[in-house]
Design a binder for these strands. Structure first.
Lengths: 140, 140
DNA sequence: CATAATACTTGCATTTTGCAAGTAGGATAA
DNA sequence: TTATCCTACTTGCAAAATGCAAGTATTATG
């Protein structure tokens, strides 16, 4: 596995987060893994925002190096790789939920279903547990 | 005031957030306003990460157009502008706190004081109230 | 009236991103 | 066994974003 020897502009936590997943695409890949059950390269490639294939390959590698996801050969289809979130990746869930709540409040065309927002505001902890359960067992 | 007629790649809430403040610098400006009491152009310019002046000017304008902050002439010093968060900007606080918690957990050189982390995990609501109180009255 | 302070703008080099086409290895079918 | 397809990339080049240094404009300050 590649070593992560990155130098940070600062160790401010906001900056650390920004440098880890603050580019134009990383969080969308994590979203696909976290909320949409995607796990294959081709699935990420087909998301609505149309990431280009070289950028996808680059971001998957960066996220792997930074320990947010793992890559492994698919047992059932030996020509595919399976990507999965690590605990470090799953731990972004609370932040992503706050992000979703904010966007739902301020984007008047938000794609977030009203029922999701309701659970998010009224019942956040059980929503988190349910989402994590849906991710199955994690890889380190 | 300039009109915001941006077209979004999608109305996925994660993508909406990304397109609003997901570049390399915007969240650092919001951090300076939210946690460090900064309000002048020169103060943002002097933050640890060393944003360059043209980028700062560009980001301040974008954030103003997107309604996250306001710009006004300083009453006490007519050669300075005062930047302040709007409600829309302040509403990013819960997300930023989750981001800080995540970075503090995974950056072993994190700059976040232990006492802040403790309050964040044990007493989040009161921490939020205190931080908002510290921001003073907001502009629309 | 000259100098300084603050907030920018401009020009250009470097880096990052985007698009289209090409390649490589395993699965499938003849 | 060969050909075709599927999946996951890589490569080359154009376009856009960022970074750096210098310049300008407006408002204090002496």
């Amino acid at each position: 596995m590649k070593r992560n020897t990155k130098k940070y502009r600062s160790h401010c936590p906001i900056n650390f987060a920004q440098e880890t997943f603050g580019d134009k695409w990383s969080l969308l890949i994590i979203r696909d893994l976290m909320f949409k059950g995607k796990k294959y390269y081709g699935e990420f490639l087909n998301s609505d925002e149309k990431i280009s294939t070289n950028i996808l390959a680059d971001r998957l590698e960066k996220l792997e190096v930074d320990g947010l996801l793992t890559k492994a050969r698919d047992k059932e289809n030996n020509s595919k790789n399976i990507y999965a979130l690590t605990q470090k990746g799953v731990d972004l869930l609370p932040m992503l939920l706050e992000m979703i709540a904010w966007s739902a409040k301020y984007d008047n065309k938000t794609g977030t279903p009203a029922e999701f927002i309701r659970r998010l505001t009224e019942d956040k902890d059980s929503l988190i547990r349910e989402l994590i359960a849906g991710l199955g067992s994690l890889k380190t």
